[in-house]
Simulated scan of single mutants.
Amino acid sequence: MDFTAIDFETANSSRSSACALGIVEVKAGKIWAEHHWLIDPQAHFDGMNIAVHGITPSMVRGKPTFSELWHSIEPLLKGQIVVAHNASFDMSVLRYCLDGASLSYPDFQYLCTYLLGKKMLQNLSSHKLNVISDHFGIKLKHHDALDDARASAAILLKLMELEEHSDPLQLSSIHGYNSGKMYVGGYSPFTRTVKKSRKKPAPRSSRLSI
């Protein structure tokens, strides 16, 4: 039961403006290590984003850029099962930051606890990170990158515990999802499995063979 949870915060609406990153490593079903960075996005901050996460331009002044941090981040993701809540957002931030720095994508598979929670916890009126965290009694300082990553990790562990699974990839497969993948040169999203429709047999010809 090993995986890595991540969460990004951004300075503005651009996915390339990462200003914080939290990473939580889970080994044998337990939190093993935590990492948190403030990042200089080299971009302007929108007031709306500041209101959400509380990170200001002065807080990232003098902090490393994403490119400068990548040598520390890449080993934590490469070859791992990576999980995020609303993974489509975090994976796009990662891709945009890598593209902006002309860096190669690492190889890993990823899951989304938002979509898994939506499928497995249909009794909840919402499946936002704070709502599912509250449902499971998980403490959360919402929109703090490390706390959000920690909550995503805890949610996946709770979902696996519900059905006594020890493999997150098996859990997502059973609930009809293909793991997302990032690899050198591209990516594929975390998506529902497409069921192949059975082809109807061709009608028999009424003609006699000659």
Rank of each mutant, 00 (worst) to 15 (best):
I6C: 08
D7I: 05
E9N: 04
T10M: 06
S16N: 07
L21G: 01
L21A: 05
G22I: 05
G22Y: 07
V24R: 07
E25A: 11
E25I: 13
G29P: 01
G29T: 03
K30M: 08
K30E: 13
I31C: 06
I31N: 01
A33N: 15
A33L: 09
W37S: 10
I39V: 11
I39Q: 02
A43H: 03
A51Y: 12
V52Y: 08
V52F: 10
V52I: 15
G54K: 12
I55Q: 04
T56N: 06
T56P: 01
P57V: 08
V60L: 04
R61I: 00
G62V: 09
F66K: 04
F66N: 02
F66M: 07
S72I: 00
I73W: 00
L76I: 01
K78Q: 14
V82L: 04
H85V: 13
S88Y: 08
S92I: 02
C97E: 15
D99T: 12
A101E: 08
A101D: 09
S102G: 01
S104I: 10
S104C: 07
F108T: 05
F108Y: 15
L116W: 07
G117H: 12
L121I: 00
S126E: 03
K128D: 05
L129K: 03
V131Q: 11
H135G: 03
H135I: 04
F136P: 00
F136K: 03
I138Q: 06
I138G: 05
I138W: 04
K139I: 11
L140T: 09
K141H: 14
K141M: 12
A145T: 13
L146W: 08
S152A: 15
A153W: 10
I155V: 15
L157G: 03
K158S: 13
L159I: 08
L162F: 05
E164L: 14
D167H: 05
L169R: 01
L171R: 03
L171M: 04
H175R: 08
Y177V: 06
S179R: 05
S179T: 02
M182E: 05
Y183R: 09
Y183S: 11
G186V: 12
Y187L: 10
S188W: 13
R192S: 12
V194Y: 02
K195V: 13
K195W: 02
K195L: 14
S197N: 02
K199P: 00
P201S: 05
R204E: 02
S206Y: 07
R207K: 13
L208T: 05
